[in-house]
Simulated assay, not measured.
Amino acid sequence: MPASTHLPAISFQSITKRYPTPKGVARGGQAGGGAPTFAALDGVSFDIAQGEFFGLLGPNGAGKTTLISILAGLTRASSGHVTVLGHDVQTDYAAARSLLGVVPQELVFDPFFNVREALRFQSGYFGVKNNEAWIDELLEGLGLAGKANANMRQLSGGMKRRVLVAQALVHKPPVIVLDEPTAGVDVELRQTLWQFVLRLNREGHAVLLTTHYLEEAEALCSRIAMLKQGRVVALERTSELLKSASSHVLRLKIEGELPPELAARARVTGRSVQFPAQDARAIEDYLAAVRAAGVRVDEVEITKADLEDVFIQVMGEQREAA
């Protein structure tokens, strides 16, 4: 029986995950018995709609992978509930997991089978029979057709990651979870992967993406949540997040170093320096300050703020609030 269109694809309801720590209270307070605990997640709540392409962003240690592990049933939440198309991941785990396709960060593979065999076995785990046509489509769509009969041990890291994606999709799940799917892979794989996933999204599959490549999230995701220290610090449509940032960014390529007072207001990557600028006056002030500091400027560019600028701004505001 198909799920109601009113049900969210994924619903996180007040998710908290605490771990005991022997070193004192790192974050989150005391456990029930008074032992110090660390809150990897602290009251996380949001829904992802059916057919939505949703981004989950945050710095390392923010709780993204913990949240996905709870969704996938690999970890139990200390409190709260997660549902997949209305099925609770703990009390109705078989139904919930059959609706999910999860691509993990780690390269996990069985070294005893070739690619096609691995996909056949994965189909069997979900009780899917006569799946050869879809397996062929996955192999072709993800650029694996030429490696179908190759042993998993013979594949490069990028090819192994393609197989992980194929395994997650082999039972045609309506909800797809991609945890850093393009970390450390080449441009060709990124393009192949996103073309295929976007096709599935257009066909109605919901996609949850975590990534450190913020240009990917900006291009792909219609809505974004940002996590920091286990809490949601931003949850908005991507277009609205971009509107909330500084309206422009002044990008310079310089020779030499900025004085500390200027460097503290900039994002510095080698010779590249970026300043948030609300208006033309701010741009003029930054350029005058750089000239007054005796720093040579080789290139000047004024652009619109992107999602990376928003991310840094939001994380900086949270740091100041803390």
Rank of each mutant, 00 (worst) to 15 (best):
P2I: 04
A3C: 02
A3M: 07
I10K: 12
Q13Y: 00
Q13F: 04
S14P: 00
I15E: 13
T16P: 02
T16N: 07
K17V: 15
T21I: 12
P22G: 14
K23L: 03
K23N: 10
G24F: 03
A26L: 15
G28T: 05
G29W: 05
G29V: 02
A31M: 10
G32A: 15
G34W: 12
A35F: 06
A35Q: 13
P36M: 07
T37H: 07
A39I: 06
L41Y: 01
F46M: 04
F46D: 10
L57D: 14
N60F: 07
G63H: 08
G63S: 06
L74M: 11
A77S: 14
G80V: 09
H81V: 14
V82N: 09
G86F: 00
V89P: 08
D92T: 08
A96G: 11
R97V: 00
S98H: 13
G101C: 08
Q105K: 02
F109W: 05
F109M: 12
R116W: 05
E117G: 09
F121E: 09
Y125T: 03
V128L: 12
N130M: 03
L139R: 01
E140H: 00
L142R: 06
N149T: 04
N151D: 14
S156E: 03
R161F: 10
V163Y: 07
L164M: 09
V165K: 14
A166G: 07
V170Q: 13
K172H: 06
P173W: 01
L178K: 04
L178D: 05
P181N: 13
T182F: 07
A183H: 00
G184D: 01
G184H: 03
V187D: 01
E188Q: 15
E188H: 15
L189V: 13
T192F: 00
L193K: 02
Q195T: 10
L198W: 15
R199K: 15
L200D: 02
N201C: 04
R202L: 00
R202M: 00
H205S: 14
T210C: 10
H212L: 13
A217E: 07
A217I: 11
I224Y: 06
K228P: 02
V233N: 08
A234G: 01
L235C: 11
L235V: 03
R237Y: 11
T238M: 05
E240I: 01
L242V: 03
A245I: 04
S246M: 03
S246C: 12
E257F: 01
L258D: 01
L262Q: 07
A263L: 09
A264W: 00
R267F: 03
G270T: 07
F275A: 11
A277C: 14
D279S: 08
D285P: 05
Y286F: 14
Y286G: 06
G294W: 02
E301F: 07
E301P: 01
T303S: 13
T303A: 11
A305H: 09
A305S: 15
D306N: 11
D306S: 06
L307F: 12
Q313Y: 01
Q313M: 15
E317Q: 15
Q318D: 11
A322T: 08
